[in-house]
Amino acid sequence: MTPADLRTALRPAGLVTEQPVGRSTAWWGVMLFIATEGTVFAALLGSYFYLRFQHGVPWPPDGIAQPDLRLPLVMTAVLVPSSLPVAWAEAGIRRGRRWQVRAGLLATLVMGGTFLGLQGMEYHENLREYTVTTNVYGSLFYVITTFHGAHVTVGLFMVCWLLAAAGRGGVSARRPEPVRVVAYYWHFVDAVWVAILFTVYLSPRL
């Protein structure tokens, strides 16, 4: 920081940190919606731990093997970085670059779709060992992961919707809201996956 910068920063105008304009109603709406969805997941994962500790050892019960980590880690490697193209698309819309929005969203679509495909493969494996009705462990495993998968699916629907709408000029530098809304949602779905990875796949090994 040069002295000149410092002087600028210390001028009264530089000390005014308040945003000139607060958040939009859409921003608040989405944030609250995500907060309440997040609570569902929190309660679901909380139930996992409650049931697990009330159950006692061994966990997983009934001779079910510890969850295999290979595929889930690949899934993580696919899903978590998929937030990047979304963020890139969002940056693009602020500058009015519609192609950047499209490219970013398409990348997300591919990554999210791959994730779902991998999840299908994992189910295919696991269903041979236990199903949702086998015992409480099976119920937890499938319900938690399916519920998350459903959120990924909804997110993909939203991305498709956005791709269609972006083509018609519905989103623009002056109306970046739809892109931002979808981006927030996608980041949320991503973050939840990390929590699920820890709860369902890693925590039984602790």
């Binding site: 009015g96 519609r98 192609w99 018609r168 000029g169 519905g170 989103v171 530098a173």
Partner: peptide, 16 residues
Amino acid sequence: WLWPPRRTPQEAGVAG
């Protein structure tokens, strides 16, 4: 319901 209203590129202020 959420479909954004159609705008011309000028209105929207986008480049391609």
